[in-house]
């Protein structure tokens, strides 16, 4: 239910006057029905109608692939529920799918980069660019130090055993494609795995 702002005292008084049900009751309206209806109830609308953009998404939890409608107002998600057009879930969702809204606008979500220096005992907040730059350098340094072109017996391998990438079963196909393409196609990493086996 949308909560109206607190009107000034004059509006408050007029609100009370409008909500006073005795006149409506004397006019014959049912005291447990129409007479008792407050103007708040009359004005009530579902918040979905405030959404200015509705996108079709797929539930990020299990592999059934339920379609969801994400309602957004400005850059804030205001609700997530099942997509009635999908032949898989026809608008229904399991508890996790129904809880997607609780994940998307969760106040405890990480929003800044956290960095832990070696042997440190606390997190530090760092800018994203700094972190990306440092990660790229660490990748290059580790690859350069451990890259093996040929095995002692001459077999061409062109790989590094010191870099690894783990994770991907909840990632998009495009993300998995670029991870394999970059890690295996360019950096020579063989340790590229995801939780398909977990």
């Amino acid at each position: 239910m949308t909560i109206t702002q607190r009107p000034r005292w004059r509006d408050k008084l007029s609100g009370i006057a409008q909500d006073w049900a005795i006149p409506r009751q004397l006019a014959g309206q049912d005291p447990s029905g129409a007479a008792a209806e407050s103007q708040g109830s009359r004005r009530l609308r579902p918040r979905l109608e405030e959404a200015d953009k509705i996108g079709t998404s797929i539930c990020p939890y299990c592999a059934v692939g339920c379609a969801q409608l994400i309602y957004a107002k400005g850059n804030d998600v205001i609700h997530v529920e099942g997509d009635p057009r999908s032949p898989i879930n026809q608008g229904t969702l399991c508890p996790k799918g129904a809880g997607t809204f609780g994940w998307l606008n969760n106040p405890k979500r990480l929003t800044t980069v956290k960095y832990r220096a070696p042997h440190s005992d606390r997190w530090e907040d760092k800018p994203l660019n700094w972190a990306m730059e440092r990660i790229a350098l660490r990748v290059k340094q580790t690859r350069d130090e451990t890259f093996v072109s040929r095995l002692p017996d001459g077999t061409l391998v062109n790989h590094t055993m010191a870099l690894a990438s783990l994770g991907g079963a909840t990632l998009d196909n495009e993300e998995n494609y670029l991870i394999k393409k970059l890690c295996a196609g360019a950096l020579g990493m063989v340790w590229v795995e995801n939780q398909a086996r977990v």
């Binding site: 996108g55 998404s57 797929i58 539930c59 990020p60 299990c62 592999a63 059934v64 692939g65 994400i70 998600v77 997530v80 898989i88 997607t100 994940w103 998307l104 979500r109 990480l110 929003t111 800044t112 980069v113 956290k114 960095y115 832990r116 220096a117 070696p118 042997h119 440190s120 005992d121 997190w123 994203l128 972190a131 440092r134 990660i135 660490r138 998009d172 196909n173 495009e174 993300e175």
Partner: peptide, 27 residues
């Protein structure tokens, strides 16, 4: 104690479906 662990850790916040385009392949 944390001081005995030498790993340098970068914890990067990630986006969720609804905040990024892409495809999933279902079961």
């Amino acid at each position: 104690s944390p001081s005995q662990i030498k790993t340098e850790i970068f914890l990067l916040p990630a986006a969720l479906p609804g905040e990024k385009d892409g495809t999933f392949t279902n079961t």
